[in-house]
Amino acid sequence: MKAVVCERLGPPENLVIADVEEPAPAPGEVLVQVGAAALNFFDTLIIEGKYQFRPEPPFSPGAEFAGTVKAVGEGVELFEPGDRVMGYVKWGAVREAVIATEDDLVALPDEVGEDDAAGLTVTYGTTLHAFRDRANLQAGETVAVLGASGGVGLAAVEIAKAMGARVIACASSAEKLELARGRGADDLVNYAEEDLKTRLKDLTDGCGVDVVYDPVGGAYTEAALRATGWRGRYLVIGFAAGDIPKLPLNLVLLKGCDVLGVFWGEAIVREPDEHRDNMAQLLAWIGEGRIRPHIHGVFSLDETTSALRQLADRKVQGKVIIRP
């Protein structure tokens, strides 16, 4: 079978297309024919050895996928050949078939397409975990989403709206903000042209926002923290800007606010029941038409390098899908 392979750590241009042996599932494992895989920003880091997961080459990028069960190992009870599934495997999905454990997979309803499902697990799973399990977001609260036009930012806009919140989308251009508006954002802040703290305070009549969703880090983190209200919650999602900010803790004290880490990859291991509940909710919302991943582009295996380069260069709005 064909696979995109990282043979040596480095930029996307180092990747190769290789013919590899199709694996056979061991006990408890499932072989899935990949219909669609999704790339995320962290894939640009994994292939350079700069992410918290550091597989040894050779390996394939791609953590999330959707497809059809091709074979099952001994002891697998939940799935059988022919079942439609979606899943998450940290890395290794950008290939024609991938091995996953039974716990890595979720049954895929007929009404949800493979492209949508492949782009759902990481960004939407992270976001619902952040809002539901960490911030305890309530209907009527106000959420500020930084980096609102990226894959995880658009997911945050959609999910916050599905949960009944008011959403303030924050991004660096009018074009990006209009994309967020199209996914349901109530208000827009261009932090390349406006002072983020001042504008968020103005939009909340000086009270500050209830929840900040920050997948960006860098220069805007402190300004957004200063714009939180009393007992606000600041969700630390990631650091797409490249810089890990240092926060003045006196602000946390004076606001009585919480700074909450969101490590979804560990949460799904430690809290599998909550993860299954969240995925069931996301699939239900897709079925109801309340959310749907915005697909930036669909690429073939041969175009994976180009897709990862666009991610690395911050040219992606929404999800990148690879169709083997």
Rank of each mutant, 00 (worst) to 15 (best):
E7P: 00
L9N: 10
L9P: 10
P11A: 13
P11M: 04
I17R: 14
A18K: 15
D19L: 09
E21F: 07
E21I: 11
P27G: 07
G28Q: 10
E29I: 10
L31A: 05
V32N: 14
A37W: 03
A38P: 04
L39I: 07
D43Q: 04
D43I: 03
T44L: 05
L45H: 00
E48Y: 02
K50H: 05
F53Q: 08
E56R: 15
P57Y: 10
P61F: 08
G62H: 12
A63P: 14
F65K: 04
K70R: 12
K70T: 02
V72L: 01
G73V: 04
V76D: 04
D83T: 00
W91G: 02
G92V: 09
R95P: 14
E96L: 07
E96R: 11
V98I: 12
I99S: 10
T101D: 14
T101Y: 09
E102V: 01
E102C: 03
D103G: 12
D104N: 15
V106I: 13
P109R: 01
G113Q: 11
E114P: 10
A117V: 09
G125N: 03
T126W: 03
H129R: 08
F131N: 05
R134E: 04
N136K: 05
A139W: 00
A148M: 03
G153V: 09
G153S: 11
L154S: 01
L154I: 05
I159F: 02
M163R: 02
G164A: 05
A165H: 01
R166A: 12
V167Q: 00
A169L: 01
A171C: 00
K176G: 03
L177P: 01
E178I: 01
R181W: 03
A185L: 08
D186H: 12
N190H: 02
N190A: 00
N190I: 03
E194A: 11
L196N: 08
K197M: 15
L200T: 05
K201V: 14
T204H: 05
G206I: 13
C207Y: 11
G208L: 03
D210E: 06
V211M: 03
Y213G: 12
D214L: 09
G217I: 04
G217N: 03
G217H: 06
T221C: 03
E222G: 06
R226T: 08
R226G: 08
A227N: 08
G229A: 12
R233A: 07
L235W: 14
V236P: 09
V236L: 05
G238M: 11
A240S: 15
I244Q: 08
L249A: 07
L249R: 01
V252S: 10
L253S: 07
L253E: 07
L254E: 11
C257R: 09
V259I: 14
L260W: 00
L260I: 11
G265H: 00
A267D: 00
I268C: 04
V269E: 02
P272F: 02
D273N: 05
M279R: 05
Q281W: 15
L282T: 07
L282P: 13
G289D: 10
P293G: 14
H294C: 10
H296E: 08
F299M: 08
F299W: 11
L301R: 12
S306F: 09
A307F: 06
Q310R: 09
K315I: 01
V316M: 06
I322C: 12
R323N: 15
P324V: 06
